[in-house]
Design a protein around this nucleic acid. Sequence first.
DNA 1: CTGATAATCAAAGACATACTTGATAATGTA
DNA 2: TACATTATCAAGTATGTCTTTGATTATCAG
Lengths: 224, 224
Amino acid sequence: MSDRQTKDALFDAFAEVAKALANGRRAELVDVLVQGERHVEELATEIGQSVANTSFHLRVLATTGLVTTRRSGTRIYYRLASECVIELWTALRDVAAAHHDELDELAAAYLGDRNRLEQIGRDELAQRIATGAVVVVDVRPAPEYRAGHITSARSIPIDDLAANIDSLPADVEIVAYCRGPYCVYADEAVRLLQQRGRSARRLEDGYPEWHRAALPVTTADTAS
Amino acid sequence: MSDRQTKDALFDAFAEVAKALANGRRAELVDVLVQGERHVEELATEIGQSVANTSFHLRVLATTGLVTTRRSGTRIYYRLASECVIELWTALRDVAAAHHDELDELAAAYLGDRNRLEQIGRDELAQRIATGAVVVVDVRPAPEYRAGHITSARSIPIDDLAANIDSLPADVEIVAYCRGPYCVYADEAVRLLQQRGRSARRLEDGYPEWHRAALPVTTADTAS
DNA sequence: CTGATAATCAAAGACATACTTGATAATGTA
DNA sequence: TACATTATCAAGTATGTCTTTGATTATCAG
């Protein structure tokens, strides 16, 4: 094989990794898996696709080495293969945010007018948690909370929030968090809470960024 | 537009960026452009493709916002749109190296047996440069040297090295560097120099990593 | 203006990818 | 063992991507 062919093959291999992320549904899958492992049916629901198609896309991600699987009974759980996949996904989002002009409109259309919502920084929240002057609510789906969450946070998935507002103390500020900057759950939670007369803010970004900043978390590993 | 459709559109936009890198030839283009701006004909030669096809791929990269252009006479120069594209490319390479099993073989086939070649670390080289006990040779193509190089390095493109060995001092160690860990130029240079009885090593990684480590460089900007 | 150079564009064929439907394989439960 | 559940696979269609060829646009030199 010539040098040219070998070099082409090497860069085709690099491109294979990009190809794995070069589909909106697979991108959504990775974005969900950043939160922790999930089984196929859950993932299909998350991305709004058939189980067969979701399985197909997961297989693409697995073949490229971005995700790995483990079986538990009839369920097969998918998870990211390593931390560096999170870094790749983050770098991809950053480039998209910086250069893809349409993205601003799309993000605005999906995220709504986030400017009106006040955010709280990670360090400030960590301090407030230490002094006990705040209630932290994890509004992601329950499996993501179980996989790992901010220490002392309470799990109230966004769909259950309306029915559970009364169980939250009335005299303390509430901080909601979710998957990250491109997730709307915490925004919805803050809007709902404020409508009900509560003092509420969203945490900047989400759980993965908190975890990455080496702030206190409780994970499925530490709990078992 | 429904929430689902809006979310899909947002993640399709993220996937667009991955799509831009999801082709071996475009990956090669980005890898070359990390070294600095180049015009279309040079890039076509670098990736071994027709000018028309290279232009097509560059247009894909430009549309996605990964590269920008400037015209100078009849030439059009392409460059990476920002630093974060380099980070994305690096993250992609890292994931590929960590997870894509075939990659090891491909890299070995293209890079040859690098284990036998001794490398010198960046910090050690920086010290040696300061004390003057080394000759640093940039074996990349001349345009890449002009765009930016290690301060005090001399440009001898790999194709010209054989004819210029005698111009290098005989009693000092030679350090060759090139584009990075997946570039063979410095390896070839070291093999050639050692065959001719010279003491030679390659720098770990390449120019972009040296630049990123904030070690001394001379760029087209600083020179003009 | 004319001719030369550099880059892009347009059309067309070969090939690859995404999603649906229905069938198959693997595990757990009665 | 038979049945239910979960996930994967296979076939088929629609769509998208890559590369080549030849024509077109943009700039510069004379």
